[in-house]
Write a protein that binds this DNA or RNA. Sequence first.
DNA 1: AACGTTGACTACAACGTTGTAGAAACCAGG
DNA 2: CCTGGTTTCTACAACGTTGTAGTCAACGTT
Lengths: 335, 335
Amino acid sequence: MRHRLKDVAERAGVSVKTVSNVVNGYVHVRPDTRARVEEAIAELNYRPNLSARNLRKGRTGVIALAVPELDIPYFAELARHVVTAAAALGWTVLIDQTGGVREQERVVASGITDHLIDGLIFSPLALTADDLTNLDGTPMVLLGERVDHGPADHVVIDNVAAAREITTHLVGLGRRRIAAIGSQRTPEGASARLRLDGYRSALEEAGLGYDETLVAPAPAWHRADGAAAMRALLTSGVRPDAVFCFNDTLALGALRALHEAGLRVPDDVAVAGFDGIEDGRFSVPTLTTIAPDKERIARLAVELLANRIDGDRTAPARELSAPYRLEPRESTKGR
Amino acid sequence: MRHRLKDVAERAGVSVKTVSNVVNGYVHVRPDTRARVEEAIAELNYRPNLSARNLRKGRTGVIALAVPELDIPYFAELARHVVTAAAALGWTVLIDQTGGVREQERVVASGITDHLIDGLIFSPLALTADDLTNLDGTPMVLLGERVDHGPADHVVIDNVAAAREITTHLVGLGRRRIAAIGSQRTPEGASARLRLDGYRSALEEAGLGYDETLVAPAPAWHRADGAAAMRALLTSGVRPDAVFCFNDTLALGALRALHEAGLRVPDDVAVAGFDGIEDGRFSVPTLTTIAPDKERIARLAVELLANRIDGDRTAPARELSAPYRLEPRESTKGR
DNA sequence: AACGTTGACTACAACGTTGTAGAAACCAGG
DNA sequence: CCTGGTTTCTACAACGTTGTAGTCAACGTT
C-alpha cells in the first residue's frame, strides 16, 4: 500500500503543504505539529514519490555513468569510485553500458537525456565531436581522451606522458626490442593513438627507433585480444624482449600467451600494462602498470558535473587532469 | 532548450493529446496529421519528459540491480547480463552497490522503493528475512542463497550439489588432503555455508573424512583474502594436495600465494574455484571452476520481476533454479 | 432519410509534489 | 491599543504527461 502526502496530512490533521514542509525540513513548523506529522509519516511508512518531486522540481537527483563495458575491470573500478563520489553529493548513479559501439554511444549522449537524468559522465570509445552537438544542454563530463575539443567538460590523464614513462622504464631495464600491443586504426582508437605516440617518442628519445613490425593491433582490449596479439608477435619471429600493452587486460592475455609459448616473464620478455587494475597485483607474475588515480578522476568528474548542473551552463568547457603513478612489479623486474 | 507536448502541438496545429497519441503510436491518427506532428517533433527535437510520464503512469521503466561490489568480476558479469535481459523488455537498469553491508542492504531493500524504480533484483550478502518485510510491495527478486524462505521470488543455483561436484572432481584426481578456502561464520555467510556443506558431503562420500584444520576462513572473498588464507594454510603445516576455493577471486589469490611459496599448480597442489569468471580462462595456470549460467540467471530474474510488476503481486513466491557447469582447466590437470 | 458505427480529434482532469501568495495568530515596542 | 514584523499554517496553481469522456464528421446499412 502506497501513501501520499494527502494521506499523511489527513492523519495528522494538517494541510498537505505542512507535511511537505516537514518532509523537506522547513524550519517554521511548531515542534508539536512536526511531531504529529512525523508520527503519521512513520505509521503510514510514507515515502515521497520521486517522479512527482522530479516533475515539480525539474531535477531527478540521478546522474548517468556511461562506460563501454562493466566487466572490463578498469571501468568497474572506476564505476565504484563514481558511485561513491556521487553519493557524497546525494546523487544516485545510473550505469549504462554502451559496448563501445558508436551508435549506442550516440543514443546515450543524446537520447538518454529524457529528463531522467540531471547529467552524464561519459567514457566514450567511438564518439566524435559531431555526435556531441545535439545535447539539449544536458550537462556532460567526458572521461579519457579529448574528443576533438568537443564542447564538454573533460577529465583526462596525460596518456602520452604516461606511455612514454612506462616505455622508458622498459628501456631502463636494458630492453632493446620493445613491442607494443593494442594499436588501433579506427576513430575509436583515440587512447590507442596517444599511448602509441608516447611509446614511440620514448623509443626515439632512447635512440632505439620505431619498428612497425613490433606493434601489434588489437581490435578490442580484452584478455583474449592480448593473448592473440602476443601469439601473432611470437609467430612473426620478431622476438621482442619486452612488451608494452595499452591496457592491463591485454597484458594479462599476453602473459598467458607467453606462458603457453614457454617463455618466462620477465626473464625472457618483460611485460607492462596500463590502468592499474586490481588483478595485476595477483597475477603470476604481478603486473607492472600505469595506475591512474581513479578516485581522483571520479571525484573531479562528479565535481565538474555538479558545477554544470547547479551553476553556469554556458561557461566555457574545462579540462582537468588527474595524476597517475608508474607501479613497477614482477613482470618487469631486472634480470 | 527543452520543449513540451504543448510546443509541438502549437507548431503542428493540433491538440496536445494528438501529439501524445502520435508519440505513443496510437493508430487512429490521419497520416497527414501524423506527418505534420512528426515534423514538428523533429524540428523541436522534442523528447518526452519521463518524470511526467512516470508520474502519470505510475511506472518508471527503471529496475534496480543491487549487488555487493561491482569490481568483483562475478557481479560485473552478472550485471552485464541483467542489463541486456532488461533492455530486451524496454527497461533501464540502475545498478546499486551495497558493499555487502547489512545496513546498506536494508536501505536498498526498503528505502530505494521511492517510486523511482518499478522493481529490484537483489543479490544480498548480509540480509535476513526480517529485513525484507517492509517493502511496500515493490516487486523484488533475490539472487543467490535463499534468505530463510523470505517472501520474495528467488533465482538460485544448487550450491551444495555444485560444491560436491567440484570436490568430487578433486577426489577423482587422486587428491586426498583437500583444503577449502572461504568459510565464514557470520550470518552473511549463507553461500559459504552451503558450499562448505557440499564440500563436506563429497569428502564423506569418498570416505575421506572432514578435517577442520583444512578449512580456512576468509572474511571477504577478494583476491587478497584468498592469498592470505592460502598462506595461513601453508604455514600451519597441514600440507594440502588440493584446494577448493569458494569463489574464483579467492582462487586467484590462492594461486598467487602458492606461486610465492614455490609450489606448483596443479603438480603440488590442485586448485579449484567457483563462479566461472573470465579471468580464470587466462590466469597462469587457467582455473578449474563451477560456472553458473549467468545469462540464464539474469534472464530468469528479469522474467520473474516482469511477472511481478505486470501480474499478480500477491501470488506465492517462486523459486527458480539455474544450471551450472563444471569447467576443468589446467589448475586441476591430472599429474 | 434515419440510424448506428467508426475514425479522428479535443477538452479536461488527474498523477503527487512544491513554490507562491497570503491569512491568521502571535509578539514586541511605542 | 495600535503598528509592523515574524511565525505558522493553508489554498491554489503548476510541473508535463496520459486516460476518459466526449464532439463531430463520414460512412454504410436498413
